[in-house]
Nucleic acid binder design. Structure first.
Lengths: 411, 411
DNA sequence: AGGCTTTTGTTCACGCCAAGAGCATAAGCT
DNA sequence: AGCTTATGCTCTTGGCGTGAACAAAAGCCT
């Protein structure tokens, strides 16, 4: 968030701070707590809350437990307030959910698909279209592959090459779709969710690794996954850290991800792998074959050591199949990790933990990415202009200018 | 910089913005340019500049070339303004310099030392003490090894183990030393300098690699090198990216830095290496042995490819011996880099460039690290309180409270 | 039950800040 | 010498957060 330089921007800035605080705590904190936490005067908080309530962004409800003193209120999502649509697209199905401010998720639809870009995205686009309303402030889509800033996606194991996700989503949709449409990869979005509502909360530098068929990972800096120059990063799986030397579908050789994910497990026990099939079998291997699991865990530990040497994160979190590897072969993991650490890192090695949000993280991350775009001075200003819930409470009391047209933001 | 939330902080914030703009451009821009660039009203700029001039932070001089209209002024360092002390400690000598706002450097002393922590740091501490004055707003020290947040430093090739740099610097110094004392490693500081005054200026995500005896490297995010949890990062040299499998002095195996720096060059031609000796010979090898140079360049390129896969930086900059490797064996470098890239990275690979500041970067980075601490609302407030150039221009015109004591900040 | 204490919300006067208009200034240009 | 142009300065204006005074709404105590 760019910081305020004029007194006018101050107000917008404080509106965002308050709304973000409500969102980040899941609408659990009372107004008086928020006032203290944000270092506001009570009077300022009054004005801010009143303004946000009038704009259908907040709605206060009485707090549950009291002690003494005048009872305080808990600001939470407004019944007519903003909604983020979030979609998680996996190899054989997608899931679409609506999320309100504060993070409450309602699953709207789950549908299988045939794995082709068109098959997966056209049906999702239709579902998105069905659930559009003035309340929708954006769509976040999680996909299992590298995403470029222009929305093009490659998913090697599904054979997706430079797939234009926003365009395919728009098939059969009415004129104006959700705005913005944020496309991100599963590992990066899982990391984002973990940073906001999981184990990486409050962590200045964390490392998140997401184990699915492949391995994805990112650094989380000050609560935000680190983007690359041409798109979200999250490609730690394509460094040669696992000790192998297989050619990888990505075009490089010896990629770490080749040795760690579900594909590696399947390969290890001689099953067919690749193409995005075999989730069920992989889970059987994970439960059954100690040897395959330990091999994966060792490769995971080896790479973690290299990344810890280089980046010195405070915590390493694992999502997807990662927690299972940690639970069933934790000693193999740490046993391969420790000797590969620099001596000075061994004194205080980072914690290696299961992510708090598990597989749900990718969907929650898609939601957070939408709210990240919304919870800005610009996002709130647009909400005011497009005017949801117009005139219901206070007819004619506002001078709304319906001037600025919606603008497409892709990242 | 934490952003303003009250109207009082607004002024402090804008003072910082203006001063930072003057510093970052090297005191070249005119007041009218700055006013436009920072989106200030002319009146606001007037007040800000007047205030900063009264506090002995800025001094305006007439601009050189005019066109039409009333001539404008160029704000630059005040003759009694803040000075940053910056030291570059190498294996056999140190250099101490004083830097004014805007970045002009005056070398104060250069002295050889015996390579021991005491030998190097006591004499440097004495020199620092000799040049202390009320104008000094901090000391930055660049060292060739990992630094922890508490100021402890390890330099494997010099045998420094958990050396308490601030303490040794204080030997024989009078009661109050410079404040803050910022200790950083050479690669990280070179990256910082490059981010502010070199090729990484304005780059959102860059990768900087510093080749000396070993190899150091960091990501530069939004103009700042990425710190680790327990200290500045800059340890990319200790990932297994170079294709070797030698045990490293750091305690791990196969470290990339083993294959790239001056030590690797010396080893490649059968000369003694390690212990921080052999800078002259290494430069001869660099000039003479094509084979050794190409081996180093290949290892460098291989690691760069892995890092580009993972992080997707916009530019990769090389300092120390890096530019020589690039110049004398650029094809070997790119030849080993390209095939190790993911296919999607090959389409638009990042530029690999020599750093603009060369070996000077470490010293300049040490300076920037001091100004980074100073150019904050807190830093400027302290300057006001400790009151440089008190009452010279405007005796008794200010109500200065000499209350807040100096406070030690180490990082 | 009634009064007291405690905490929170509301209102308003105040001070501070940046914006912006009007005017002054100092050059180049004709 | 007078005009044009860009910049600096000053003063008024509107907006914002602060903090004090007051009101409100509960729990607590006698």
């Amino acid at each position: 968030m760019r910081s305020a330089t004029t007194s006018g921007e101050l107000r917008a800035h404080n509106r965002v701070r308050l709304l973000r605080a409500v969102h980040d705590c899941g609408a659990t904190r009372t107004r008086s707590q928020l006032t203290r936490d944000l270092n506001l005067a009570r009077g300022t908080a009054s004005v801010l809350v009143a303004g946000l309530a009038e704009d259908a962004l907040l709605h206060e409800e009485p707090a549950a437990g009291h002690t003494r003193g005048r009872p305080t209120q808990v600001p939470g999502p407004h019944p007519g307030g903003p909604l983020a649509l979030a979609a998680d697209v996996r190899e054989d199905a997608w899931e679409l959910a609506a999320c309100e401010l504060g993070g409450r998720v309602s699953v709207l639809e789950v549908q299988p698909h045939d794995g082709t870009p068109e098959g997966a995205l056209a049906s999702l686009g239709q579902a998105v279209s069905d659930h559009l309303s003035r309340r929708v402030v954006g769509l976040g889509v999680a996909l299992a592959g590298p995403v470029r800033h222009d929305g093009l996606v490659d998913i090697a194991h599904l054979g997706w090459r430079s797939v234009d996700v926003p365009r395919l989503l728009a098939l059969g949709r009415r004129a104006s779709g959700p705005d913005p449409v944020v496309v991100g990869n599963d590992a990066g979005l899982a990391a984002l969710a973990e940073a906001r509502r999981g184990r990486l909360r409050g962590v200045r530098l964390g490392l998140h690794l997401h184990v699915d068929f492949d391995l994805g990972g990112v650094l989380v800096v000050d609560g935000r996954p680190l983007d690359g120059a041409s798109g979200p990063g999250a490609e730690f799986g394509h460094m040669p850290l696992g000790g192998g030397d297989r050619p990888c579908a990505c075009g490089a050789t010896g990629c770490w991800g080749q040795e760690v994910g579900a594909n590696a497990l399947l390969r290890h026990v001689g099953l067919a792998y690749g193409g995005g099939r075999g989730r069920a079998q992989a889970e059987e291997v994970l439960a059954g074959s100690r040897e395959a699991v330990e091999a994966g865990a060792r490769a995971l530990g080896l790479g973690i050591a290299a990344l810890v040497n280089a980046h010195d994160p405070e915590v390493v979190t694992l999502s997807g199949h990662g927690p299972a590897l940690l639970e069933r072969a934790g000693e193999a993991l740490t046993g391969s990790c420790a000797p590969a650490l620099m001596a000075i890192r061994r004194e205080r090695p980072p914690r290696i933990e299961a992510a708090a949000l598990g597989w749900r993280g990718t969907l929650l991350g898609a939601m957070e990415s939408v709210f990240d775009a919304f919870l800005t001075p610009e996002g709130l200003e647009r909400w005011r202009e497009t005017g949801p819930d117009q005139g219901a409470d206070t007819p004619g009391s506002r001078n709304v200018t319906h001037s600025t047209p919606k603008q497409k933001i892709l990242q």
